[in-house]
């Protein structure tokens, strides 16, 4: 049984087998699950389709979430981008719109795909469908990208954590952004080493980020952190493709993320007892929601 437990092992395995990270994931999955590769690819395609549906429905839905504290921003953002006003360039601007669309859909209890969690579900679809829109990366390639992302996510999840309750937002939006950065690099022809390098750079940028959802809802500030995650993913990918290296190896960054998460007080790990959740406005929102419920 092949077990890949670190980014170092992953790069070595890819170089030894002369495979990309997505091909390595597919091979490992087939061995572990006993399913044939075609079946696994079909299952992943199904997930890409659900992601696309979430983007398509979210991008034109201006309704607010049941909480009343999110919704309508994807419509605003995509209209602004469509008018050509955006400062961030096409790749990042489109990714921002798609990411908003997905995360708003999630807040409405709509169907989404966790990547790796629901709270961070906007980032990966954001960058993937932006690549498709801007350089015509075919859907078949995007499916490959999902295998790259899941390989990176598996290493992170097993060495550290991927949920805000366990390790803060750095573990959730941080991991998703790191996965997205690496995925962009692989889809743009980078080596496994460059993929892992982008993953490290992105994760470093979000180290220490706390999980402080207002009213305990996956909306404020989660939705906008997904949006910002897409721009960090593109920046980290660009740096890595330019040949910039992370001075701290990726496995050590993941280890640091784990330790920071362990040191994080309970109030800053998805309990809604600290950070933005406990601001004056945050507390007002919580009170209003809970009064309405009872």
């Amino acid at each position: 049984m092949m077990e890949i437990q670190s980014m170092k092992e992953l790069i070595e395995a890819c170089e030894r087998e002369k495979k990309s990270i997505s091909e390595m994931m597919l091979m490992v999955e087939a061995k572990k699950s006993g399913r044939d590769e075609d079946t696994i690819i079909r299952m992943m395609e199904e997930r890409l389709i659900k992601m696309k549906e979430a983007v398509d429905s979210g991008i034109k839905d201006a309704s607010t979430a049941p909480s009343g504290i999110s919704g309508g921003d994807a419509v605003k953002m995509s209209e602004y981008v469509r008018q050509g006003k955006s400062l961030s360039g096409d790749y990042i601007s489109n990714a921002m719109s798609f990411s908003l669309a997905t995360s708003e859909n999630n807040a409405r209890m709509g169907v989404i795909v966790a990547t790796p969690t629901a709270g961070a579900a906007g980032i990966l679809p954001g960058v993937l469908f932006s690549l498709h829109k801007n350089d015509g990366t075919p859907y078949k390639e995007l499916v490959k990208g999902l295998f790259t992302a899941s390989m990176l996510g598996l290493v992170i999840a097993n060495r550290s954590f991927i949920s805000g309750a366990a390790g803060g937002c750095q573990a959730e939006v941080g991991s998703a952004t790191a996965m997205a950065a690496g995925t962009i690099v692989e889809l743009k022809g980078g080596t496994p080493q460059q993929v892992v390098n982008a993953t490290a750079i992105a994760m470093k940028s979000l180290l220490g980020l706390v999980c402080d959802p207002v009213g305990g809802l996956v909306e404020v500030p989660c939705i906008k952190r997904n949006v910002i995650g897409t721009s960090i993913a593109f920046s980290a990918a660009d740096m890595s493709l330019a040949g910039v290296e992370s001075r701290i190896p990726c496995d050590e960054v993941i280890e640091a993320m784990y330790k920071v998460g362990k040191d994080m007080p309970r109030t800053l790990r998805e309990t809604a007892l600290g950070g933005l959740a406990m601001t004056e406005t945050g507390k007002e929102v919580k009170e209003r929601l809970f009064c309405r419920k009872s």
Binding site: M44, N106, I112, A114, P116, G119, S150, A157, L217
Partner: peptide
């Protein structure tokens, strides 16, 4: 990691 397909808001 990629999944589940689910209703939101939290995995």
């Amino acid at each position: 990691i990629i999944g589940p397909i689910m209703v939101g808001p939290s995995s």
